[in-house]
């Protein structure tokens, strides 16, 4: 019988510093095929495990991580060539089939961008895909992940809209919460699928704004964050409203979420 809790040892191939507290780790790809929106359980040896979303398309295994807990703090001490443990991929990701030939609206805050990143690249590869629009909010300009990459993506036809909560003198971009740029950038679109990942409060207001603009609940997908110790629907920490966020989610459609007997956002 296969042991679902046993990690595989992989080498860190490359590390990129994104911001002061966000790094991107490219690790050896040894796990089964993953799809956008799924996650892995990452082990830092001698410290423990944490769930980390995958920020690349298969076969690459790229993990963009914010330094926030004990495992990620230890991960930031590691160097290229060091080893970590991974198991997965886990969860139900973004509705990629649903997305075919339709427009994609991506909304995220902070470190909510990495799990949406593989959607953008799958859109670039698919000539039949509709338009792709990103609304991304960060605390400050220096807290923006993938800054250089976003500029390149803008040149490749992705509509990139960014905003920051606070900024230094001389910043020419937008200031304000992500709903401010959403209001200007997003128009009612029956042929769009909206996907969001970020702090619960942001997603609550962002989905409310989409509904006010005339989007329907079945057009809105939300990736939830929960504590996940096992990733396979056993440890119980992520259970909410009768669903295991790690297994039945982390991506849920808004109308599915609202039917559950517990407030999810």
């Amino acid at each position: 019988m296969e042991d679902p809790y046993l990690p595989k040892k992989v080498k860190i191939l490359k590390i990129m510093q994104e911001t002061s507290d966000i790094k991107t780790f490219v690790v050896e790809s040894v796990l089964p095929e993953h799809s956008p929106g799924q996650f892995v359980e990452l082990t830092v040896f001698g410290v423990g495990e944490a769930p980390i979303s995958i920020s690349s398309s298969y076969p690459a295994m790229v993990l963009t991580v914010k330094k926030i807990g004990s495992v990620t703090n230890a991960l930031f001490e590691l160097k290229e060539g060091d080893y970590v443990g991974v198991r997965g991929p886990y969860g139900r990701g973004w509705p990629m089939k649903e997305l075919k030939r339709r427009n994609a609206i991506l909304i995220c805050g902070g470190v909510g961008l990495p799990p949406l990143r593989p959607i953008i690249y799958s859109r670039l590869l698919d000539k039949d895909s509709g338009s792709t629009l990103l609304c991304y909010g960060a605390r400050t300009p220096d807290d923006m992940a993938y800054r250089g990459e976003l500029e390149k993506l803008a040149k490749q036809g992705i509509s990139i809209n960014t905003t920051v909560d606070t900024c230094p003198m001389g910043w020419k971009g937008n200031v304000g919460v992500v709903t401010c740029i959403m209001d200007r950038a997003i128009k009612k679109d029956e042929n769009a699928v909206c996907m969001m990942c970020g702090p619960p409060v942001m997603m609550k207001f962002a989905s409310k704004m989409l509904l006010d603009k005339g989007f329907t609940k079945d057009q809105i997908y939300i990736s939830l964050e929960r504590m996940m110790k096992c990733g396979v629907g056993k440890c119980g920490h992520c259970m909410a409203g009768g669903k295991y966020v790690c297994k039945d989610g982390p991506v849920f459609r808004l109308d599915e979420l609202e039917k559950l007997p517990e407030r999810m956002l």
Binding site: K229, K234, H237
Partner: peptide
Amino acid sequence: CTCFDIEDEIQLKGGKTER
């Protein structure tokens, strides 16, 4: 009731970690 935690604990002797 079967909910659980998974934690790593470094052993003082032998440089091993227990999951």
